[in-house]
């Protein structure tokens, strides 16, 4: 292993690293052990606290909660993609009267914390006589925020297309809308697919905000089951189970994003071997994806 920081270690460095390795393993084991010990000492591994998992009705409730999470995700994702596409097109339009308001909308929803948006939908709309309910408060919030981010992603993708693409298309006599829909967008979407999926991971994670407005999704169910007296209030076990579900769902999506990215990169490299210095560009892309996910 050689990096910009270290050379390939010699015998001395190897010995030193091995010592570090032993010490580090001990520290990691100690930390994990302490957590495990605290869990055991406070009775988190008590069979009673896990027995709720055995009941069919509870399993069905959990599945329903999972369904609630996934349906918020699927509906939110579909609407956000549509919203993103529409506003990206508007921002790329030749008409200023379309471009300007679209820019304002996108920038506005990107600047507001999603929680504020969801709270406003949930608390303010009923006062205006429109009851949207928890599901739609959550889904509309997710759509507006993630849709705005996706609009920027789509736009960046289209703008990153080499100029020759649209010039060639115009030269062939295609109309403006044809150039966009048949030449630029398909390529842009393909190039941005990893970023788009990363944003969908963000959306999936954000469905958990439904907990704050009592949408009955996984986290809500965990809280409910965690408060049941007859199972010794197993809040830590329920949190662990729900966390495992969330983490595996997100990892699955993240893995898909990484896979697509690797595949894209391979093809690009194969097609255009002349493109210089892919490493720096790649890590920059990685940077972008990573910061996106923090939201």
């Amino acid at each position: 292993m050689s990096s910009v920081l270290y050379d390939i270690p010699g015998p001395k460095a190897k010995a030193r690293n091995a010592t570090f390795g032993v010490v580090a393993s001990l520290v990691v084991i100690a930390v994990l052990g302490f957590i495990g010990y605290r869990f055991a000492a406070t009775g988190q591994f008590d069979p009673l606290k896990w027995s709720w998992l055995e009941y069919q009705t509870i399993q069905l409730d959990l599945l329903n909660a999972l369904k609630a999470t996934l349906s918020a995700f699927v509906v939110g994702a579909a609407l956000a993609l549509v919203f993103g596409a529409v506003f990206a097109l508007a921002r790329l339009s030749d008409h200023a009267w379309l471009r300007a308001p679209a820019a304002v909308v996108v920038e506005f929803f990107r600047a507001i914390p999603l929680v504020i948006l969801i709270f406003t939908l949930y608390y303010a709309l009923p006062k205006a006589g429109v009851t949207v309910g928890v599901f739609w408060s959550l889904v509309i919030g997710l759509t507006l925020y993630n849709g705005s981010v996706l609009a920027e992603v789509f736009r960046a993708g289209v703008e990153a297309m080499p100029k020759g693409q649209s010039e060639a298309a115009y030269a062939l006599g295609l109309r403006k809308s044809q150039v966009m829909t048949t030449v630029l967008l398909p390529q842009a979407v393909r190039a941005m697919l990893p970023t788009i999926i990363s944003q969908l991971v963000v959306l999936l994670k954000d469905t958990a905000l439904g907990f704050l407005i009592t949408y009955q999704e996984l986290l809500f169910e965990a809280r409910y089951l965690g408060g049941l007296g007859e199972f010794g209030r197993p809040i830590i076990p329920t949190a662990m189970v729900v966390a495992a579900v969330y983490i595996s769902l997100c990892m699955l999506l993240s893995w898909l994003a990484n896979y697509l990215e690797r595949r894209n990169r391979r093809k690009v490299r194969y097609a255009g071997a002349a493109v210089a210095k892919p490493t720096v560009a790649e890590t920059q892309d990685e940077l972008k994806i990573d910061t996106l996910q923090a939201e």
Binding site: E54, Y55, T57, E230, A244, V245, L252, W255
Partner: peptide, 25 residues
Amino acid sequence: RTLAVGLLVGSLALTACGKQGGPSQ
């Protein structure tokens, strides 16, 4: 990742053979 998937599959598998009734007090 394998562990997480395993847990998920495990919990789904459990669904097929759940206990009925409950420890109602």
